[in-house]
Simulated scan of single mutants.
Amino acid sequence: MLMNSADRPATLRYEPNGFTMMTRGKFVLCAVSGEMIPLESLRYWSVEHQEAYASPELATKRLLGL
């Protein structure tokens, strides 16, 4: 069975002012919670860790090592 891009996560390269899609998809997974984040809702990520976060609280938690 073939999967379309809506069925799988995108692979992104996170940059300081945005991101570049490396592999097509409609969402990414939060590095802390595992929650699916639709690309149109993605607002928080780490360039250093190359990770996405579902909320500012989860980003802070990851970056502080909590």
Rank of each mutant, 00 (worst) to 15 (best):
G18K: 09
V28E: 00
N17F: 11
C30R: 03
G18A: 06
E15G: 08
K61C: 05
S41A: 05
G25F: 08
V47K: 14
P16V: 05
T60C: 06
D7R: 11
E51R: 15
M36I: 08
R13V: 09
L64D: 10
E48W: 09
S55N: 13
Y14E: 08
P56K: 10
A59L: 13
M22N: 08
L29T: 00
G65K: 03
L63Y: 03
R43I: 02
E40F: 11
Y53W: 09
A52G: 12
K61I: 01
L58A: 02
W45L: 00
T60E: 05
L66H: 12
L42S: 01
S55G: 08
H49S: 14
S33K: 10
E48G: 06
E48R: 14
L58C: 02
T23C: 05
L42H: 01
A54N: 13
M21C: 09
L12G: 03
T11Q: 11
G65Q: 04
P9G: 01
V28G: 00
L58I: 04
A54T: 05
L39K: 01
Y44C: 13
R24V: 11
E51V: 12
K26L: 07
V47N: 14
F27V: 01
V28D: 00
G65A: 05
E35P: 07
C30L: 06
N17L: 07
N17P: 07
G18F: 10
A59R: 13
Y14L: 12
Y44T: 13
Y53C: 04
D7S: 14
A10D: 05
L2Q: 10
M3T: 03
A6G: 15
A54Y: 03
S33R: 11
V32D: 00
F19L: 02
T20S: 11
S33P: 06
Y53N: 03
R13C: 08
W45G: 00
G65P: 04
I37H: 00
R8G: 10
K26A: 09
V28A: 00
L63Q: 15
G65V: 07
M21K: 11
S46G: 14
S55C: 11
Y53K: 05
P9W: 06
A54M: 11
K26N: 11
S55I: 11
M22V: 15
L12F: 03
A10W: 07
S5C: 09
I37C: 00
F27R: 02
D7T: 12
S33G: 10
R13N: 13
L12I: 06
Y44M: 07
L42D: 00
L39A: 00
M1T: 14
L2R: 09
L42C: 03
L64M: 14
L64S: 13
E15R: 15
T11C: 10
F19V: 00
Q50G: 08
T20H: 10
R62C: 09
F27P: 09
A52M: 10
A31P: 09
S55D: 07
